[in-house]
Amino acid sequence: MTASRIRAWAFVHKWTSLVSTLFMLLLCLTGLPLIFQHEIDEWVGASAGPAAVRPGQARASTDRIAAAALADHPGKVIQYLGWDLHEPDAVFVILNDAAGSHPNASVSSVYDANTARRLGPPGSAFMGVMLRLHVDLYARLPGKLFLGAMGTLLVAAIVSGAVLYWPFTRRLPFGTVRPERARRVVWLDLHNLLGIVTVAWLTVVGATGVINTLSEPMINHWKATELGRMIAAHAGPAPARLASLDAAVARAREAAPGMTPGFIAFPGTPFSTSHHYGVFLRGTAPFTARLLQPVLLDGETGAVADTSRLPWYLTTLLVSQPLHFGDYGGMPMKVIWALLDLVTIVVLGSGLYLWWSRRRRPAPARAVPAAGAASA
Score class of each variant (00 low, 15 high):
186 V>Y: 10
298 D>P: 06
336 I>L: 15
184 R>M: 00
104 N>Q: 06
89 D>K: 05
134 H>E: 06
136 D>E: 13
308 S>I: 00
43 W>G: 08
88 P>Q: 09
212 N>T: 14
109 S>C: 05
29 L>R: 01
136 D>P: 10
9 W>S: 12
244 S>W: 10
147 L>G: 10
48 A>Q: 08
172 L>Q: 14
245 L>D: 05
223 K>V: 05
19 V>D: 03
317 L>W: 06
181 R>I: 01
131 L>C: 09
151 G>R: 02
122 P>S: 04
270 P>Y: 10
8 A>K: 12
236 G>N: 09
90 A>E: 15
320 S>R: 03
218 M>G: 04
352 L>T: 06
198 T>K: 00
154 L>C: 13
183 R>L: 05
182 A>M: 04
147 L>S: 08
237 P>W: 11
103 P>C: 07
220 N>E: 12
48 A>T: 09
157 A>M: 11
61 S>V: 10
361 R>K: 15
121 P>D: 05
82 G>R: 00
46 A>E: 14
38 H>Y: 04
21 T>Q: 00
164 L>F: 09
319 V>A: 15
331 M>C: 01
351 G>Y: 01
361 R>E: 15
372 G>W: 09
118 R>Q: 10
41 D>I: 02
368 V>N: 14
61 S>G: 15
229 R>H: 07
142 P>A: 06
167 P>L: 08
243 A>M: 06
134 H>Y: 08
277 Y>P: 11
6 I>K: 13
254 E>M: 13
337 W>K: 00
127 M>V: 09
228 G>T: 00
188 L>N: 13
19 V>A: 12
193 L>W: 14
323 L>T: 07
86 H>N: 09
224 A>Y: 08
115 T>D: 12
15 W>M: 05
88 P>M: 09
263 F>V: 00
365 A>G: 05
161 G>L: 08
57 Q>S: 03
110 V>P: 00
4 S>R: 11
359 R>D: 01
35 I>Q: 08
143 G>S: 13
5 R>K: 12
316 T>K: 13
170 R>H: 13
369 P>G: 15
52 A>C: 04
160 S>H: 09
27 L>T: 13
76 K>W: 07
127 M>A: 13
22 L>Y: 03
187 W>K: 12
245 L>V: 09
207 A>R: 06
327 D>A: 07
248 A>D: 13
255 A>I: 11
348 L>N: 04
194 L>K: 06
159 V>G: 02
342 L>T: 00
194 L>Y: 04
47 S>Y: 03
303 A>H: 02
186 V>R: 15
317 L>H: 07
328 Y>G: 00
91 V>G: 01
42 E>P: 02
293 Q>I: 08
112 D>S: 10
142 P>S: 07
100 G>M: 01
199 V>R: 04
160 S>F: 03
77 V>W: 00
18 L>V: 00
197 V>P: 01
225 T>R: 06
57 Q>I: 05
212 N>C: 15
171 R>C: 02
329 G>V: 03
